[in-house]
Design a protein around this nucleic acid. Sequence first.
DNA 1: ATTTATAATCCAATCGATTGTATTATGAAT
DNA 2: ATTCATAATACAATCGATTGGATTATAAAT
Lengths: 346, 346
Amino acid sequence: MENNKITIHDIARILKIDSSTVSRALNDSDRVTQKTKDKILAKAQELGYQRNHLASNLRKSKTYTLGVIVPRISRHLFSSAIAGVEETAYKMGYNVIICQSLEQLERERNIVGTLLANRVDGVLLSVSMETINYDHLQGLKQRNIPFVFFDRHCNISDNSNVLIDDYQAGFDATEHLIGQGCKHIVHFSGPQNLEIYKNRLKGYLSALQIYDIEFRKDLIIESRLMEIDGVENAKLLLELPYKIDGIFSANDIAAIGAMQYLKQQGIRIPEDIAVVGFSNEPISALIEPSLTTIDQPGFKIGKTATTLLISQIHEGATKMKSETIILKPNLIERKSSLRKFESGNY
Amino acid sequence: MENNKITIHDIARILKIDSSTVSRALNDSDRVTQKTKDKILAKAQELGYQRNHLASNLRKSKTYTLGVIVPRISRHLFSSAIAGVEETAYKMGYNVIICQSLEQLERERNIVGTLLANRVDGVLLSVSMETINYDHLQGLKQRNIPFVFFDRHCNISDNSNVLIDDYQAGFDATEHLIGQGCKHIVHFSGPQNLEIYKNRLKGYLSALQIYDIEFRKDLIIESRLMEIDGVENAKLLLELPYKIDGIFSANDIAAIGAMQYLKQQGIRIPEDIAVVGFSNEPISALIEPSLTTIDQPGFKIGKTATTLLISQIHEGATKMKSETIILKPNLIERKSSLRKFESGNY
DNA sequence: ATTTATAATCCAATCGATTGTATTATGAAT
DNA sequence: ATTCATAATACAATCGATTGGATTATAAAT
């Protein structure tokens, strides 16, 4: 219990001045003369004073805390986004509470409750795969707590988002496969309640159309994109009545699962089937063959979303205008999709 | 600013009772009769009352917040430990602030400062590779804030730790390589300020001794165990005047870097050189060949450390007895170390 | 009915910082 | 020296919940 408990009142008593002056001095108010400020600051330093944020925040009814909800922190995109969030938040005097929904709506709901109970000043949110309704976000709206979606957003009105151009990325990935000579390209898609997967799919379709490739509905396989789903998808596509020669997977994990299985079956990658993933997980550069994928600027997404959120917090509830920022993804070509004939061309 | 701002005083006013009674009712004190409790609880529910933790915590001078410092959340051990921490903490009414030192002492120092400023009730800590002195932990000691090391601990007196048996793991890994017929085993070690690397090294040495294998000092290569270090280490070991036939790396990342390089050089794994890593990163199961490694029970480490920390917080500063809990690691045999002659035996 | 013991509730101070208003100090102008 | 404007500081309420002590209500005992 001997926590150093220096308060502004201690400093005030010692210097025989009022605590309000101490408070103002420590906040660099111009209502205190420089001489007194110096005296107070020196004494504060000497005593090892640290402001009690609880008291300060109670008075100001602000917590200087942001909530971050992600499906799981172990995913590359999210861990790098979190790094960006933390850097920006700390720099601007905010703390961050990080929570994982583990892709479960139920947990996401609870987390929102916890964040409300903790009276966070704002929330950054990347929704779970199970998030099909948004009732749990009502509490945030009601209490006028600003929130910004990043990456995995929702199509509800008046929200701010920081996204990447999933449509473009889907298009680029598919175009790349077409450029490698693929004619029958399977797309591993994710739950269609998530806009990102819808958009990646749209990009895929659009590329097929532009390059005059016939679209077949059964070439789209929807799953939760776990590793095991990749394996299952691969089994499925081998049973299709077409000779599949390309896969565009909406994430790396499923692509890797598929590749593992296909390799076991003696199928050569990229010669028989070229594969493109999504997210540029660190593992994608290390597997055999290395995986062509879409790099998402995670750190920048985190930074941007945080900056946007904090600006909304500062603006206050007055005119919470929604804003959507879309960042550019980037195709990384690796061995899993580069056909021999291509490299032979150089 | 229309945040729902129901306070105990609102409830008190409406029910024409005192706010202290409301407070006691909401805390289920036995100084309030059940009838009044029911009335108060019903009204609180009706109004959507939520306790203001700032005020409550200020009064109780507790924050119900734990700080967690890890080198990086993207590492498998840490992300799974954090999952364990969160589960336990939330269950016991605590929040968690997660911070990454990114292996930098300077950042670790700042983080401790931030956590102090936020008056966390306790800290869970896995130190950075650069942490060679512990001055920055003095602040915690002075203020009697309990802290528990997990995995990467420090050899300073009277600390609580939750660790795995790195010595045993090092021994098991090395013994396994010896069992595969390896005679010249290189050990990739990490910074020796960290006990974990010292202990893994000790286990290695001990296994060599017991199996009567000559120890050579130049078979120990120390680095920061990044992927690039693994590559460099591999180059080094090819220049050694012995025919190396085994590698025991103190983490998976460096092992993988080495394997990539060795494969490029046409060296067969495990036939020419068998490799064992450490940590069971998800990637280790997916690379080619899959990597034999040591699995650390990350989730359990996180749970155990949190339980220990919270129990210390509850005990108070009175008799903060230190305690060290050591969990068992587990060797996972995969292709990178299983020699043909072995499988031939079956 | 009155006393007494105990249960139930109320009062008021407190946690530490902030902030609008009131007061005093300072110095310039007359 | 006195007045006045302004700068500097002090006072006191406030944020919302908690808690020891005081007071009142209730019921049991005489």
